[in-house]
Amino acid sequence: MLYSAIMEKVVLVEDLGLNDYKATWEYQEELFKHVVDLKIKNRREETNLPTPNYFLFVEHPHVYTLGKSGDLSNLLLTEKQLADKGATFYKINRGGDITYHGPGQIVGYPILDLENFFTDIHKYLRLLEETIILTLAEYGLKTQRSPGETGVWLDVGTPFARKICAMGVRASRWVTMHGFALNVNADLGYFDHIIPCGIRGKAVTSLQVELGLDKVDEAEVKGKILKHFEVLFECEFKSVVLDGSLTGTRNL
């Protein structure tokens, strides 16, 4: 007898605030493994327990990450220079090349069982991009996709093309992790030390720069992201409050 899984449309959203990249990565892996293990249990035991979905918001201290297909030469700093900049570096298991994370950047990590929604990785990436495009449109910015380059851009096809949101995901058994990084109030000077996403000759920008503001309300931006994500993925968000650390007890 084939089991019939229940399609769980609730997404548990957690805002981790400013948190270390490695600790957050390990937490993602914990949630990811929980979902995958439950799917394996359902298949082996022919049960139909619903699989949970998560959405993590976080800001990281200065860090550079290199995707599994990335080129290390796109990092333009030595180990000593990294330390002098107060930055760390990690090779990780997402797609994409090198990128930067830091304060003032909104990072979103959806850990979804796509079998609760649709089984199409390309559609997933396009909907992530659309979430950001619709969010930025609320600030009067016309952003778009760039052919062959994942993420969200301004002035595509012109000498002034610039990237405002990077994306890189991993998926296994239709469960996702990693996600997007939207430059809101980020210090763009840190991008000078890499070839962002391995793409030469393309600039990066931020919502703060594009709007000409001293500071953009990041909580407001997060709210808009969740609003558009909820509509596009036809899901329902439920907020979860952590105990203040990534190592505390959670009921998964």
Rank of each mutant, 00 (worst) to 15 (best):
E149Y: 14
L188D: 02
G151Y: 03
N183Y: 09
E230K: 13
L127M: 07
Q144L: 04
K163I: 07
V221G: 12
S172P: 00
M167G: 14
H193K: 12
A166N: 02
E138N: 05
R170H: 14
E220S: 10
F180R: 05
E236M: 14
A219Q: 13
G189K: 03
L188T: 10
H122L: 15
G157L: 14
I164W: 00
T135N: 01
G189D: 10
G212M: 04
S239I: 12
E210D: 03
L127D: 06
K222Y: 05
G198F: 04
I199H: 03
A161V: 15
D187W: 07
S239Q: 09
P159G: 15
S172D: 01
Y190P: 01
L154T: 03
A219F: 11
D192G: 09
R200I: 08
S146H: 13
G223N: 09
D192K: 12
G148Y: 13
K123Q: 14
K202I: 10
Q208P: 02
I225L: 15
H122I: 14
Y124H: 13
E236H: 15
R170G: 03
L141W: 03
G212R: 12
K227D: 06
G168F: 14
L232D: 01
V156I: 09
G198Q: 12
C197T: 10
I225V: 15
I225M: 13
E218F: 11
V221Q: 05
K222L: 03
L213C: 09
K123S: 06
A203H: 08
F160D: 11
V216Q: 00
L141C: 01
K215D: 00
C165H: 00
T131L: 00
H178L: 04
Y190L: 03
V175N: 03
I133D: 00
Q208Y: 01
N183T: 05
R170Q: 14
G223A: 09
D120T: 08
K222A: 05
V209S: 12
T119I: 10
C165I: 07
R145F: 01
T158W: 09
